[in-house]
Design a protein around this nucleic acid. Structure first.
Lengths: 351, 351
DNA sequence: GCTTTTTACTTAAACGTTTAAGTGAATAAA
DNA sequence: TTTATTCACTTAAACGTTTAAGTAAAAAGC
């Protein structure tokens, strides 16, 4: 049994085979100037002795880490977890490693995290910007330092690089039109604080749809909640329901669905009879909520996947120009009970 | 403006200050043999010139990566995403980086991932084992190679190291007792395929509770679904509902809740009147499902946090012996509509 | 006033790879 | 046969840190 679990390095492997480390290194990287016979011998010995090249030595010498960073606001949200699945599905295949960082939507954290990346720790960056980020100098600086960045979902227009987003304006527009079509006359947008592209786009889409429907949006129709699930959101929405008495709600983030449902229950409003609700969310429980929830479902997995593909495409050979790549994947309005008059019909509409 | 974004290394910084790299290195690591005045000068210059030490050079030289790996089966599950939040809350503070790997419950992937860690890429490992893992040689080998491991949620008894789990046996036992108390006489366990500790413990707890309640569990009361959300699960559960006609279900994984609700709907069974349901899940939508779902809620965040704390405790000074640390955090049975006779009372019971 | 200790540095080796440049033998070209 | 080329390696430098060992000057001890 060759169960030598003591760590073996390239030198030891070389000595064992009576070869130089250069030969070992080249053999393992399948260099053309090593004979096939030697390559086989080396690979076999490496396998047998359980040799794995030291990542830090390789990284130092070759100036590449085979590692990317995923920087996202939070993880307890099905959009982001599905997106990570998408990212992982391509990173894993490409033998890349993925570091994960949560900004909790804080600009300071985001800046501190990005600043670290000057250390050469990562070859590239997949990110969804924090909602509190206004100043983008930290991102620009990293980019100037030569680290390629691909934005997904929440992009940052000031930084000229690739982005993979979904059509937030249209999604919000169509979702709002749907509410109007279902008879709503006093629709509110429940969203989160922050300066993020997607929330602005959703707000715009909402506003335009109202105008197109002959409804003038009032300032009182906009509610800003903290961007994480909390009792405060429930209270804010509850108060809003009491004061403004909307008959329709468009929720821009997943965690607001639970908050809105609970608030409606507290205020004794029946969904969809008294108030109809649409939410941007990917949660799989949407069809089994009480009532089932009409959602704007985003292509989370595909967005993560595409973003990762763009980054790896760039990293493997710099053929593509990242600043020219802007993918917009369609979201889907999935109509369910929370917006139907009768509360149990289901259908799918492609946006 | 010192906006020199070209990468600066320690040598350049040393030259700029007319000092040796040794002095810079020591100053930045706050070594006792550098004067306070010099330290201040160095720190100031490093800040000003935007110097960040090369992670790969430091890693190579010092034999530590300041990086840990998180190896989990999947991420689109609130338990795991909340656990990652917990891990991140301590890793971020300790200036550690976290690599994330998904096994998708495949032993082969898990083994391949762990094998890579011999490369020195990580200082330690936080993991929840794949459900298809039977042979644990890959884990043992890594441990023998000197990489500390802390299991969370799904541990692996064969490997003598720390674990942070929740009391799955008791949770399942109590959940099952609750179903019996609510009048169920023919209760089925809907679980997933695999050999994982927690599922075995949940099954045992279920079985024992039935026996304690004078009910003999039949083989037909056990349904094994694939461990990811899929139509197949819905079909399997639907068939089971038709054939065995249970009046109570204990679901061992989050994604089964949606599947079970949809299956019940398809088969035209009313929850909780025809069938009562309890599910192991942390999803925040549980209270707004139709009907609200009685859950076994696990301390996911705390488990991630504790696991990370144990690992960092060990890494920072090897005072603790990992193999002696076994935390068991309590889960909570949260009773809701899916198990109440009247369908809308709520209460909390500590397990 | 001489020795010892302390202070605040510097020198240089080492970490484990990768790779440009070099080499000697075999083969091909002339 | 001589020269050029190819093949299959080896040598050694380099990547950017950390740190053990060394040092010269200042401070302390006697």
């Amino acid at each position: 049994m060759d169960d030598d679990t003591q760590k073996i390095n390239m030198k030891a492997l070389a000595k064992a085979l009576n070869l130089s480390t250069a030969t070992i290194s080249k053999a393992l990287r399948d260099s053309y100037d090593i004979s096939e016979a030697t390559k086989i011998k080396v690979r076999e010995a490496a396998e047998r002795l359980n040799y794995v090249a030291n990542a830090y030595a390789s990284g130092l010498r070759s100036h590449q880490s085979n590692t990317i960073a995923i920087v996202i606001p939070e993880i307890a949200d099905s959009f982001f977890s599905q997106a990570i699945n998408g990212i992982e599905s391509v990173a894993g295949n490409k033998k890349y490693h993925a570091l994960i960082y949560l900004t909790h939507d804080s600009y300071e954290r985001e800046a501190a995290i990005l600043n670290e990346f000057t250390s050469g720790r990562v070859d590239g960056l997949l990110m969804s910007v924090a909602s509190s980020t206004l100043d983008t100098a930290h991102i620009g600086k990293l980019q100037k330092a030569g680290i390629p960045i691909v934005f997904f979902d929440r992009d940052c227009r000031q930084i000229p690089t690739a982005s993979v987003t979904t059509d937030d304006f249209n999604s919000a527009y169509n979702a709002t039109c749907h509410l109007i079509k279902q008879g709503c006359k006093n629709i509110s947008l429940i969203t989160v604080q922050g300066h993020v592209s997607i929330f602005l786009a959703r707000k715009d889409g909402f506003r335009r749809a109202l105008e197109a429907g002959g409804i003038t949006p009032l300032p009182s129709n906009f509610v800003y909640c903290p961007n994480k699930y909390s009792d405060e959101s429930i209270k804010l929405i509850g108060n809003h329901l009491n004061e403004v008495q909307p008959d329709g709600l468009l929720l821009t983030v997943e965690h607001l669905s639970t908050a809105a449902y609970l608030a409606a229950e507290e205020v004794k409003l029946s969904i969809p009879n008294d108030i109809k609700i649409v939410c941007f969310t990917n949660q799989i429980t949407a069809p089994v909520l009480n009532p089932s929830l009409t959602t704007v479902q985003q292509p989370a997995f595909a967005m993560g996947q595409k973003a990762a593909e763009l980054l790896f495409e760039y990293l493997s050979h710099k053929y593509i120009q990242l600043e020219k790549e802007h993918l917009v994947l369609p979201s889907m309005l999935v109509v369910r009970g929370s917006t139907s008059p009768t509360s149990d019909n289901k259908k799918l509409t492609q946006l």
